[in-house]
Design a protein around this nucleic acid. Sequence first.
DNA 1: CAGTATTACTAGATTGTCTAGTTATCAGCT
DNA 2: AGCTGATAACTAGACAATCTAGTAATACTG
Lengths: 185, 185
Amino acid sequence: MSAHPTTSSGYWYAADGERPPALQVLEALRAYRTAESAMRLRTRESMGMGEKDVLALRYLLEADRAGTPLSPRDLASKLGISSASTTTLLDRLSRSGHVARRPHPTDRRALVIVATEEADCEVRSTLGAMHERMMRAARELSAEEAATVTAFLHAMAEAVEAADEPQLEERVEDCRQAAPDHGAA
Amino acid sequence: MSAHPTTSSGYWYAADGERPPALQVLEALRAYRTAESAMRLRTRESMGMGEKDVLALRYLLEADRAGTPLSPRDLASKLGISSASTTTLLDRLSRSGHVARRPHPTDRRALVIVATEEADCEVRSTLGAMHERMMRAARELSAEEAATVTAFLHAMAEAVEAADEPQLEERVEDCRQAAPDHGAA
DNA sequence: CAGTATTACTAGATTGTCTAGTTATCAGCT
DNA sequence: AGCTGATAACTAGACAATCTAGTAATACTG
């Protein structure tokens, strides 16, 4: 950062005490992220489940609606957990009555997981009002504003996705040389 | 949803095959969220830590920079974990050389947690390039566009934060009455 | 029809979290 | 000053969710 005094930090945008708009945007993005993860925690607690369980339920309901039901295998890969964990996750959700295991119509090894009506109600009633509020806010944007916001969010997703970085060790080494004093070690 | 045919879903915005802008915006928001959580996972794995550990490090570095160091207590409340978990978290981070426990200047019961130079380097080198990309994208917005995006993100955060809902049981009950057939049970 | 791949599950170990209780220190009251 | 209750960090023991490795049943392929 300190090597780029003309670009990102180190000066004031002073007259009216405001920070540069780009910073405000990123700050707002972070605020949203924080609010969102707090909401996730509330949801998690309100339904008495772990985070993966809630996420799994979301995927299942989505797939149900789209008419393309999921197998345990699909779920495992979407959630990024192992097949073993998926089994126990399904045990949990099944015991709590949120999902049911159905035989796959053609493959007798496989299963199809469906969310129960109760789970659908629970999720809808927990998240529905929030979705409504978000939709209302989104609809208040003009077409041009919506395009701006959409483009920005896509740019952010792209910025976050790029992953062609050197190995950790090298990067840390570079940094150590660049900043030889910090007073912490 | 199906009870509001004029507002949210159920018609086409047809001529050029596009969905309504509000939907596109929310979809972009979800895409960003997905990309971000994938990034978090990569970070987590690249540094060989749990999610809470990475988050704790972020808070610590932020606090360090702001000149307001954190106590284990502060950290526990920011992370939403217990004091006991905080102790073991600090044991982990301390053993791996990312943080150090320092005596509090005035309160001899308390500690001050500082991130080591190495942790600073590691986080900076892992997330620095990404921040740069995000900043670059944000700076490409005009002042008005930035204002639009900022306002939208604040509205979203607000939409997600509102939490004055009835108890879970009642909501589920309402829903069950409203949608008596779904074929899952 | 035989051999390999795939699906879901089981067993045992590891990890991160929690609650409850301990010790040292601080701040207020008499 | 000398108690007394509150607070900070830590310790012990238990629990929940995950992982790896391996098993049984079923599907595909030559």
